[in-house]
Amino acid sequence: MMDRARLVTLQIIVAIVAIALWHLLTTVPVGEKPLLPPFFFSTPYDVAERIIKWFSTGTIWRHLWITLVESVLAFVVGSVGGVLVGFWFARQPLIAAVFDPYVKMANALPRIVLAPIFTLWFGLGIASKVALGVTLVFFIVFFNVYQGVKEVSPTVLANARMLGMSEQQLMRHVYWPSALSWMFSSLHTSVGFAVVGAVVGEYLGSAAGLGYLILQAEGTFDIAGVFAGMFVLAAFVLVIDYLVTLVERRLLVWRPVTAETRT
């Protein structure tokens, strides 16, 4: 195991090298002009300038806030739905069997084709982005909870019965914690998809948000704006992912570290 300081140093070196390469290729002329035309690739300097301008004038905050609200709503609604339906299906095998092909069908559908319909149904505002995020989050949580309830160790279950648990107590002490632990272990994925839903939704038609910002820049061939939007989005996702890690550590204290599942 490498010590942390050295690891971070190496990670920073990778970033510096990448940015330096980008800078050299777009600004230093080889023969007559640079290898990468700045019109299509922008330059690190322009992008940095744009990001600083967004933050110093404060225009970015509104877009970040909108995207954050959409992501959080999509995550909460999708998770609650996924937990409830996952639990219900796992405890009612007949229902699960009947709906199985439809669940697979809905999950196999590329969610992006739903975006125009959601825009028609819910308008250009937040709701249509939330709906798109929900369709992504729901299935991840649903499958994990379903699995979590189904895959309770038979020994633990038999033990619970022998310890005198009623059906209701089994729910509370065995199925529920097991399902939640599976849901939490997919937290990174589901939160990530909530953000994807929000941004893709914005990109396909909206009036605010990070996706909107990128689309606007693209529409005016403002490549610096596109790259700046991408970097802000990446930073936004990193911060959220870090918060999820903190939450996860708190919620899954009982789990051995090796059991962490990430998809």
Partner: peptide, 22 residues
């Protein structure tokens, strides 16, 4: 049981107390 039968999401104390709890 021969296999692991404790509730992994409960502490040792909670695992022992669960029989009385229910």
């Amino acid at each position: 049981f021969q296999a692991e039968a404790l509730f992994p999401w409960k502490t040792a104390l909670e695992n022992v107390a669960i029989g009385l709890d229910v």
